[in-house]
Nucleic acid binder design. Structure first.
Lengths: 199, 199
DNA sequence: AATGTTACCGGACAATTGTCCGGTTGTCAA
DNA sequence: TTGACAACCGGACAATTGTCCGGTAACATT
């Protein structure tokens, strides 16, 4: 007979809010976990019981906006039901790439703190990622059954690579070392990797 | 009038050897920098003066094998001078992907320890990576000038994405969570992303 | 209101990273 | 041979991560 305390959720929210605030003011890297605990008025034990590490915390912060993004994407795709799957796939990536670029620094942090035999789910096993993966896999499968290309043997694999091919480190390098803007990255990526795939 | 001490190189080699040994025996993550210093019979100051962090050390360890790989790849490509660039590109990736997969855990470590405003070169700015990038960019440029496809507007960008689209985290996930073998990854990647690009 | 459970507080603690620096040793050049 | 100087040794140190635990406060059930 487990007991649910209604202050538990409040504490979580306090932590998330304090963390988001500190991250925005000083940058993710410059903020320590103990600092977050103190700012949230929370003990260290409490903080770590909820979020095993900074990456875990970032994942939680990212989750909400990511889910909003996914549902909006899903809505957009639904409205295109009468268009060919190729167009839907292209539209998805024209929206996804900027989103990935904008959130690269969070994902870096999430992946940087992942341990080897972690019981906690991978970024790739997180809810938002799985939703996105399924959405894209569906489009590719549809393209495949239409027989418009011979290349898409393994839709899930292809989807996985497409999503993660703009890995956070790559994005940051393209932005800061090569000087590309978000839109340039998005445009070129789609031109080079989505168009050839669907024609 | 800088003075070169010939024991300096010896010290570097000692460190690299001790690190490689410890990494192989206990895994990269389980070995601390102080441990490496002690095993190499070297002071901590000395260790950190040469290698700013564990990633830096891993990069140095990876460098040699990577350069060997690159030169062998270059040789292979040279022998295919009379074949179309498309075939050369395909051959490159059929060899590169397994290499990337096998070395994923090193690259994870290298990228995990990178700081923001680091004076030290990025992984993407390392010598091996630049060589590889140029090799692949060359092929794509050649394909482009042959006019066989309209998609390759920005060869360097395309090359960059292609190389890093199998990011280390993605590779590890495909292997350990999805159960793909190295060869399956290589085969599917080439089928989905190299073939469509060059036809 | 009393009780048993659950969560929280918050400091101590160990481990690691990375820095610094005084003292020492080896090397090169004159 | 000797002096200048680079490189090294190695411990002290601060900061961070993550764990643990005894004591305390809040909650839900009765």
């Amino acid at each position: 007979m487990p007991v649910n305390r209604r202050d538990a959720q409040e504490t979580s929210d306090l932590i998330l809010q304090a963390a988001a605030d500190l991250f925005n003011r000083h940058g993710i890297e410059a903020v320590s976990m103990h600092q977050i605990a103190k700012a949230a008025g929370v003990g260290q034990g409490t903080l770590y019981r909820r979020y095993a590490n900074k990456g875990d915390l970032c994942m939680e912060l990212l989750k909400d906006s990511f889910l909003v993004f996914c549902s909006r994407l899903d809505e957009t795709v639904s409205k295109m039901a009468d268009e060919p799957a190729q167009e839907r796939l292209y539209t998805i990536f024209r929206q996804l790439i900027p989103h990935t670029v904008e959130n690269a620094k969070w994902i870096v942090e999430i992946q940087a703190h992942q341990r080897h035999g972690d019981p906690k789910p991978d970024f790739f096993q997180s809810e938002p990622y799985r939703i996105l993966l399924r959405l894209i896999t569906n489009q590719i499968e549809e393209i495949q059954t239409m027989g418009s290309t011979a290349f898409l043997h393994d839709p899930a694999f292809t989807a996985h690579i497409l999503i993660s091919s703009l890995s956070p480190h790559t994005v940051l390098h393209l932005q800061h070392q090569c000087g590309y803007t978000t839109d340039e990255i998005s445009e070129r990526f789609c031109a080079s990797f989505i168009r050839p795939l669907i024609r």
